[in-house]
Design a protein around this nucleic acid. Structure first.
Lengths: 210, 210
DNA sequence: GTTTGACTTGGTCACTTGACCAACTTACCG
DNA sequence: CGGTAAGTTGGTCAAGTGACCAAGTCAAAC
């Protein structure tokens, strides 16, 4: 059996509490994540909460800062298939992201709830933007890598392209959370793949090869 | 001064309460919309609430049923400009919707909060889907009308097309609520307009004219 | 081994929330 | 005009809520 230490540094306790909070939120929604519920989930006394966090706001801040989407695009992305067209490659990429959403809807719900909360609170209102930019950064980097591997260049700015992709994915995602119709979501996804592929063209022959 | 009736039928009182609730939610967020705050806003005693609604859930149900987006696409849509290309016409259409979003962000925030709430509550979990379908219906109808007026036909199903438009708009919208960068939003909007225009082609000459 | 400071907790506070009821007031109908 | 049903309200309840504190417990530094 694991030796349960009685004393744990506040830092790791904060992390444990944040994890527990996320777990409660995913299971029962953000409103159910009271300090008591969180501490119970973490196996601590309720008073521990205010030893680790000055206030509940501070927990929200911690949750939105250690961005949750890390989980999302940490998945393995498909490798480019040179024999397939750009549309098919974009399609595979979008679908790879999508499977992450579909397999863990609760996380996306929580993220939406947290962002809504932060947008109302002047103290936290910077975080949604920060979150979105971080998200966009990753999408941009991924787009660049993908274009290079596929021997394509974009006909609009990479960041603008990423912005479109993120908008489409988040739109499809939030719609799917409402209707839960996988077929419709995949249909939209594939349609967007074709459209986005239309924003690419082959690299000129003289370009530096991969 | 207006003669204030002491007795008001419960039906209209329900409506007054729903209006007040929406006002409070837009101003201070959904969590601030307690039965007390709502009744104060409506100028009634708190006990009135439970005379008009069996429970608070029932208010949420009422709010999500009398869909709020009616306000959104009730705006006057631009008429098709025959001399302009399809991309430009789609652009104008998307921008018309967008100005409604931009001029009233609070409504969209509340809608998002309400949908999140409903998605957690088994009792209300049908409503988001219903809401989305109603929304999609209007988008579909509008798309059809627009295509006819512009003398275009779509290269994919009308409903699929509408699904893409709705996804793109909601994606741009929710991103904008985070970053509040008008320029970026309009840029994305215009890019999507071009893409969507690519899903149209002129009506064959033999078709019935407008 | 004692001191010191970090960690831990039961108990409690002031406050809010949704719900409800008994008593009251008004409108309408016969 | 009297009665009946609909509307109205102050007051109250139980169940939470975030916050906080005083009294402990433990581990490492001296």
């Amino acid at each position: 059996m694991t030796a349960t230490k009685k004393h744990i540094p506040a830092d790791v306790r904060r992390e444990k509490l944040a994890d527990a909070a996320l777990r409660v939120m995913k299971r029962d929604g953000i409103t159910a994540a009271t300090t008591r519920a969180i501490c119970t989930e973490a196996g601590m006394a309720q008073s521990t909460f205010h030893y680790c966090f000055r206030s509940k706001q501070e927990l929200y801040k911690a949750l939105l800062s250690t961005d949750i989407n890390v989980t999302l695009d940490a998945g393995t992305w498909p490798t480019v298939d040179p024999s397939a067209g750009p549309a098919e490659n974009v399609r595979l990429l979008l679908r790879a992201y999508w499977s992450a959403v579909e397999s863990d809807p609760a996380t996306h719900l929580v993220l939406s709830e947290l962002v809504n909360l932060a947008q109302r609170d002047p103290e936290l209102s910077d975080l949604p933007n920060w979150q979105h930019q971080a998200y966009l950064d990753r999408a941009t980097a991924l787009t660049e890598r993908f274009a290079a591997e596929a021997g394509l260049q974009l006909t609009i700015g990479t960041r603008q392209f990423a912005e479109l992709v993120v908008a489409a994915l988040s739109g499809i995602g939030s719609a799917w959370l409402s209707h839960r119709d996988d077929r419709t979501a995949l249909e939209s996804l594939d349609n967007f793949a074709v459209l986005f592929a239309g924003l690419t063209k082959p690299l000129p022959p003289g370009s530096a090869p991969l």
